[in-house]
Design a protein around this nucleic acid. Structure first.
Length: 797
DNA sequence: CTAGGGTTAG
């Protein structure tokens, strides 16, 4: 038979055998196409017109409705299906699962079995996917059990679904277990599920290792694999691996995928390579909001708010789609720039475009206004929110604290707890630092307890703030306990410990901790050195101080700031090396600021150097003309030197300028009530009792050898009057109250807003011995632990 | 009827 003839017969044969069937196949094909395109109503029209329908026709129509979420219609068609198969059931179930209808999905799953149809890998796959997305762990476990019973536990589809379900439910170990059981037969989707499982559960290193193994086994990655790998590179700041992945992406031809592109941009931004990120953004053919969002956020995070704003302007001008992720980054950049004008403009735009109702956006608005110190606006946005979350509260709480309204911050936290919003680590850390600022030990302990009860995981920032809170309340032991309980310490933890010991009069321990810190491989930062210099200064370790001061620049490249200089001047001043302190000020390679001059002035006070004091004061009068402190200090130095006339003249000048000294006051917290005392004041309800107790106290300590030091009296009056005013200092009123009302054996905790006066300091030492009490006095500079006539500060403060 | 994905505020 010739070839020609053979072909003719074949064509003829197929024309008679297949022709009628072909039209059904073609129509089914068309129906499926319309369904995939989402043209469900067109599909229905075609379906209705079809004179002949087979199983595929019916199933496609059910799926067309089910996939678009039109489940009522899907079920109607389903019920009309003449002969249902496992596939028909799966199509319907898949629709319910895709749209999150958990109850209906499971009902149909059991129903199909009772009607004699075996679920397939597709049925289980759909249900597992729903469990994964909705985090239905126990439902997923049920399916896992079912899969084992029905021998589906060797099926790649089902196993992959299980891995994804466990990983999305934060059960990485279970996911890993299934992954390892599947020694062979893992496909690229299985690998991708595992990689993303690691990456989404914060195990970036394993994600990357898994990706490497995948490639080693010769499995090709695709557009679904790369984003997870790239975000892991970003989390580890591993730009070298990231660039290799970029190479794979180019090789595989996946560059054009928007998901891949945006994760590339994000990776480069997080690795601080803005140049490469920008290049990736430029190469995009279609501009996609997510990629632009990543780039804008990258600019903000890398401290380039101006670039972030200009990118947003471009985005806005080009009619690009802007979403709820765009605004927070831009608002954040305006917060960084303190750009209040554009802040308001952007707020207007948010309102105009209807994005105010997005929590993400409103929270960013609160944060921006708070950072721009416009608490009223922040509160306005907060109050306008229908549904607040913990971040809304945190933004406001931190905003208050940032503006120095610590009490308001604490009240807000209380309100939040009353509203039964669960706290998280960040708000706890923020609230603890407000407790710390106000030295509210009881409240701080309650927040600590609240945190433990919450069952939240420990976090570095919470532990670090707990340490600071306890240290700031004079509870050194508790601060150390927290430190010891921590699994990891960063430079902030160590610095907190160093500062805690330094301000509580244990500077030598601070220096020991510094050595331990270095030994553990953690590098100090500029705050660590402030702690160290503070420790040296309060312990009188001049040589060590000089050594650290030199080391910070030499060994760690940290340029001393005015604060470091101030510590050094303080250190030299206390040690009586006034000339050296003056020399250091003159040698500074930066302009000395007010803190530096104040340190010098304080040094002059201790050593009665009026000439240098005048010089320092002059500088301060220039730098901070509205500050009363230098006037008071200089006047005190004059008084101490017996130069009453100069002192009086200065006081008059101060009054003429309308400057008022911050009044000194002391307080004691008892049973949640703060008892405040002001020198010579009698507003306390137990005032009579307190003053009469004070008479007894003075008499008793005098017997033990206390002599009033009238140098600390500021009044230009006779000796007896000066002594009298001295005995009514706020610290002394507070200690009398403490002796009356704080039970024996419990430390008396006194707080003072200014530095403790020298005479009061001396008196406290006697009180601690005569009355056998532990007195903890926190002044504006450090803690004084008085015990058995000795103070922990070693009389340096 | 076919599993898997990026940006996420303090």
């Amino acid at each position: 038979m010739s070839v020609q003839l053979h072909r003719t017969i074949q064509t003829f044969a197929s024309s008679i055998i297949r022709k009628p069937k072909c039209s059904l196949i073609d129509k089914n094909k068309k129906l499926n196409e319309l369904s995939k395109l989402g043209q469900t109503d067109e599909a229905r029209k075609l379906f209705d017109k079809m004179p002949e329908r087979d199983e595929f026709t019916w199933t496609t129509m059910v799926a067309a409705y089910a996939n678009r979420g039109r489940l009522v219609e899907a079920r109607q068609v389903f019920q009309e299906v003449p002969t249902k198969s496992s596939i028909t059931w799966s199509s319907l179930i898949c629709g319910y699962c895709k749209h999150g209808f958990e109850i209906e999905g499971f009902e149909l799953f059991w129903q199909m079995q009772s009607e004699g149809h075996m679920p397939s890998q597709f049925t289980l796959g759909s249900i597992l996917r729903m469990c994964a997305i909705k985090g239905l762990l126990s439902r997923g476990e049920q399916i896992h059990g079912y899969a084992i019973k029905t021998c589906f536990d060797m099926n790649v589809f089902v196993m992959t679904g299980l891995i994804d379900m466990y990983a999305k439910s934060k059960r990485v170990l279970e996911a890993e277990c299934i992954f390892q059981i599947m020694s062979h037969g893992k496909n690229h989707v299985t690998w991708t599920a595992m990689i993303n499982g690691y990456s989404q559960n914060g195990d970036a290193l394993r994600a990357i290792q898994c990706f490497s193994s995948m490639r080693a086994e010769g499995i090709e990655a695709n557009q679904y694999t790369f984003p997870g790998v790239l975000s892991s590179c970003a989390a580890l700041s591993d730009i070298r691996f990231g660039m290799q992945v970029h190479g794979c992406i180019v090789n595989g031809g996946f560059e054009a995928n928007v998901f891949v592109q945006s994760s590339l941009i994000d990776m480069y931004c997080k690795c601080e390579d803005l140049h490469s990120a920008k290049k990736a953004l430029k190469q995009m053919e279609i501009n996609h909001a997510v990629s632009w969002n990543s780039m804008i956020l990258g600019y903000v995070r890398n401290g380039l708010p101006v670039e972030a704003l200009s990118l947003f302007k471009k985005m806005h001008a080009s009619d690009m789609e802007v979403d709820e992720f765009t605004y927070p980054s831009v608002l954040n950049s305006l917060a960084c720039m303190q750009d209040t004008k554009n802040g308001i403009c952007l707020h207007c735009l948010v309102v105009k475009t209807g994005y105010e109702s997005y929590k993400l956006v409103s929270n960013a608005l609160i944060d921006m206004y708070a950072k721009q110190e416009d608490l009223a606006c922040a509160i306005n946005v907060f109050n306008s929110m229908v549904e607040k979350d913990v971040i809304s509260w945190t933004s406001l709480v931190t905003g208050c604290a940032h503006n120095g309204f610590y009490e308001e911050a604490l009240k807000l936290f209380y309100e939040m707890r009353m509203a039964e919003t669960k706290p998280d680590q960040i708000i706890i850390a923020s609230v603890l630092s407000s407790c710390s600022e106000l030295a509210l030990l009881k409240l701080g302990q309650q927040v600590h307890a609240d945190f433990i009860k919450s069952g939240l995981e420990a976090s570095l920032s919470v532990d670090n703030s707990l340490m600071t809170m306890y240290a700031n309340c004079g509870c050194l032991e508790d601060a150390k306990k927290v430190f010891n309980s921590m699994q990891m310490h960063n430079v902030i933890s160590w610095t907190a410990l160093i500062v805690a010991y330094a301000q509580n009069g244990k500077g030598k321990e601070s220096l020991r901790f510094y050595d331990e810190m270095i030994a553990s491989g953690i590098e100090p930062d500029f705050i660590t050195f402030i702690g160290l210099l503070f420790a040296c200064s309060h312990t009188g370790l001049v040589d060590d101080g000089k050594k650290y001061f030199a080391s910070m620049k030499k060994d760690y490249g940290i340029r001393p700031s005015p604060d470091h200089y101030a510590c050094m001047i303080d250190l030299l001043g206390r040690a009586g090396k006034i000339q050296e302190a003056e020399k250091l000020v003159n040698e500074m390679d930066i302009e000395p600021d007010a803190t530096v001059w104040k340190a010098l002035l304080a040094a002059c006070r201790v050593h009665g150097n009026t000439d240098l004091a005048e010089k320092a004061s002059m500088a301060l009068f220039q730098l901070e003309p509205q500050d009363a402190v230098p006037y008071v200090m200089l006047s005190n130095i004059y008084s101490a030197a017996g130069k009453w006339e100069n002192a009086a003249k200065l006081r008059r000048k101060m009054n003429l300028k309308g400057l008022n000294k911050e009044p000194g006051y002391s307080w004691i917290e008892m049973n949640g009530v703060v008892h405040t005392f002001i020198s010579e004041e009698r507003s306390h309800t137990k005032s009579d009792e307190i003053y009469s107790k004070l008479e007894d106290v003075i008499a008793l300590i005098k017997e033990a050898g206390y002599v009033a030091d009238t140098n600390f009296s500021l009044h230009d009056i006779n000796e007896e009057g000066r002594e009298r005013s001295l005995s009514y200092h706020s610290e002394k009123l507070a200690i009398s109250f403490g002796l009356l009302y704080v039970p024996k054996g419990v430390p008396i905790r006194i707080y003072k807003n200014l530095r403790v006066c020298g005479d009061c300091h001396n008196a406290m030492k006697f009180v601690s011995r005569v009355f056998d009490r532990h007195i903890i006095l926190r002044d504006s500079n450090c803690f004084h632990h008085f015990k058995e006539g000795i103070c922990s500060c070693g009389d340096y403060w």
